[in-house]
Each structure stands twice: as structure tokens, then as C-alpha cells.
Simulated scan of single mutants.
Amino acid sequence: MMRTGAVSAVKTSAKLGRGRWPAVIAALVMLILYAVAWPTLQLTHDVPAPLMPLVAGFAVFPFVLVLSRPALGWAVTALAALVIPLVFDRIGYYTYPWQVVHILVILSLVLAVAVLEEIRVVLVVWIATVLLFFLYMPGDDGWGWTVGLTALIVFGLLVRWLVISRRQLAKEEEVSELERARRAVLEEKARIARDLHDIVAHHMSMVVVQAQSAPYRLTDVSDDVRAEFDSLGATARDALNEVRSLLGVLRSDGYTPENEPQPGIERIGELIAASQRAGVRVTANITGDPVGVSDGVGLAVYRILQESLTNSARHAPGAAVDVRIEFGLGTIEMDVNNGRGTESAPAIVPSDRGGGSGIRGMGERATAVGGRLVAHPRPDGGFEVHAVLPTVVAV
């Protein structure tokens, strides 16, 4: 953590140093301090007039580095603080070793070092400055300055860590926002893939079933017509496999209930009738009152039934399918059972490229509305789908 803060401080220092207006302001303040230090130097130290601008500049000019390279600025002004009391005598009534302006420059650079430089540099500057003040300040003032300098360093470190923590928080919020956007995209892709699977796969499967069962359902079918039906079924299967391969790319584990208008329980009759027209022997027993069923649950019921009928037609062609839906008080119970497929129509072998997402999609839909779903083979070779859903989406 300390190393991370040091790196962040170095980057902050470089950024501030490259800024135009901060550098202009630092230079302007430095000129004001120099304008004060030069004429007042004769009041504090015995310095020859020709050397006064040089001595004042030696003490004050390092302030211009306060935002870009404060450690270097501190080193120069600290060297001036070390040399000036040794070379030039003080005026009799003046007890401090440096001008007040010089002291302000030292304190400003110490604070900048605490905020912007690495921790080990801050430690060196603190120790060196404390020793400098402790040795040169008159009487017992060195102890007071030691406490004051320590408090200044602590304050600078607090400011530094506050800035770093706010910057890290802003970065984490940005990452979280990007993650939320990424998840939203994945969830939208999952929704699109699920709807395409439920709609396209269902109707394409009906086309395949009709094409392959037509020679067995219709009488006096010539060989040419039979070949045409076989070609149609093969083409539809290839198209279905390509669609499932594409959906495998779109799918993800995210799922959000759809808000757009979608089919619901009012279209269950149409779904069963469409399957019957396609040659699936479906019998339906729907009981209870569907009043109060939410749109999300109605969509889940429709899609689960649609996928169940599609799977029955694809994997057990010619088998009877029994659909039972009971709208109870607060719950909806649904069973879809089919027997073993007959041998009069060739079985459609499912493609592995689709990823087998149909049953998993049904389970996800049931879970999304607060229900549960079980799908498993029956002992007689058939298949059963059993779902229990609430009438409204569970919160």
C-alpha cells in the first residue's frame, strides 16, 4: 500500500509539474516572495549590497519547484539555510537564523514533499529539516519547531492519502461501471439468444418434422415427391444446426426477465394448435383460472411449453404428447409428457454444435420467476418436463 501511494504521488507530481497554470502561479508566488526577501535581507543579515539579490534568490528561487520537483527545491533551499547563517552574521536584534520569507519557503517545500514525493523521501526530508531547525533555532525553540514540522508532515501525508484514496475510489467506480455495462451486454445477448432459440428452433423443428413425416402421413406420395421432402428436411436441419451454432456464440450465463411485449398464456392455445398442424399428436388439459398471472410468468410458461413441444417433436417423432397445465391459487403447475418415438418416422439426431441449451434455458426461465423445473427421461423411454411456477414473479 505504501509503495502504491508512492507511485501515485510521483505520477501526481509529474502531472502537476506539466500543468501550465500551476507553474505560472508557482512562479508568480516565487517572484512575490523574492520581492519581499531582497529588500528585507539587509534588516536581518549583514550581507554586502552586491550579494543581496543572489543570497535572496538562493533562498527563495527553489519555491518554483514546489509542484514539479519539491524534493529538489527543498534540497536547494535547505542548503541555503545551512550556508547563510555560517557565512553572514545576523543583525544584532534579529534572533532567527533565516528570513521569515526563507522559513515560509522551507515549510512550503516540506509540505509539498509530504504530499507528492515517495515515503522514503518524505522521511529523509522530515529528519533533515528537524535537525536543521533544532540546531539553528535559538534557545529551546528547536523543540517547538520539531513538533510543528512533524505536524506539518502528518498533515501533508493525510492530504496525500486522501487524494490517493479518492482517486482509487474513482477508478474502482469506473471499473464497476464498465463491468455493469459488460454484464448488461452479456445479459442482452443471452436474452436475444434465448428468444431466437425458442422461436426459430421451434418453427424450424416443425418444418423438419412436417417434411420428414409427410411421406408417412400422406397417401400416394411418389418417389420424386418423397425425395423432395427428404431434401427439404435435410436443408431445414442444416439451417437449424447453423442457427444453434450461432446462438452458442451469443449465449452467456446472464439472464434478465424481458420487458418488451412477449407471448404469454393467452397464446398457449395457438402454440398447441401449431404443433398439431405440424403432425405432433398433442392432447392438452388446461384447468383453473389464469387471472392474475404476471407477464413474466406467462412468458416463462409459454417458452417452457414451446421448448418442450419442440424437443418432443425432434427427439420422439410420432409419439403422443400430453400437456397438463393447472392454474392454482398462487401457483401454476405444468407437465409435458411424451412417449417413445414411433419407428414409422425417422428420428432426428440432435446436433452437438448447439450446446444442448434448450433444457437449461427452460430451467433458467423457471428460476428467474422464482419457480423450479425438473426434466428427465421416463422409464418407458419417453420424457417428462415438470414445472411449478408462482403466478407472479418472486421478488
Rank of each mutant, 00 (worst) to 15 (best):
M2D: 10
T4E: 15
V7A: 13
A14R: 11
I25G: 02
A27V: 15
L31H: 00
L33T: 03
A37E: 15
P39A: 08
T40D: 10
D46H: 06
A49G: 04
A56M: 07
F58L: 15
F58I: 05
A59K: 02
A59R: 02
L67Y: 00
L67P: 02
S68C: 08
R69T: 09
A71I: 12
A71S: 13
V76D: 00
A78N: 02
A80L: 07
P85N: 05
G92A: 15
Y94T: 02
W98I: 06
W98Y: 09
Q99H: 12
V101F: 10
L104P: 00
S108M: 07
V110S: 05
R120F: 11
V124N: 00
W126Y: 10
I127E: 03
G148D: 08
G148Q: 12
F155W: 11
F155T: 12
L158M: 10
W161S: 11
L162A: 07
R167Q: 14
Q168G: 01
V175Y: 00
R182M: 09
L196F: 08
H197D: 15
H203P: 02
M204A: 13
V209C: 01
Q210G: 11
Q212K: 13
P215T: 12
R217Y: 14
D220H: 12
V221L: 08
A227L: 11
D230W: 07
G233F: 06
T235M: 06
T235C: 09
R237D: 01
D238I: 14
L240A: 09
L240V: 04
R244Y: 09
L247K: 05
L250S: 04
E258N: 06
Q262N: 08
A273D: 14
R277S: 14
V282R: 03
L299M: 12
V301E: 02
V301N: 02
Y302G: 03
E307D: 14
S308K: 01
S312W: 01
A316Y: 08
A319N: 04
G328F: 03
T331L: 12
M334I: 09
V336K: 00
E343K: 11
S351Q: 09
R353N: 13
R360S: 13
M362C: 12
G363Q: 14
A366N: 06
T367F: 08
P377Y: 03
R378A: 15
G381M: 07
F383T: 01
E384R: 13
L389A: 09
A394K: 08
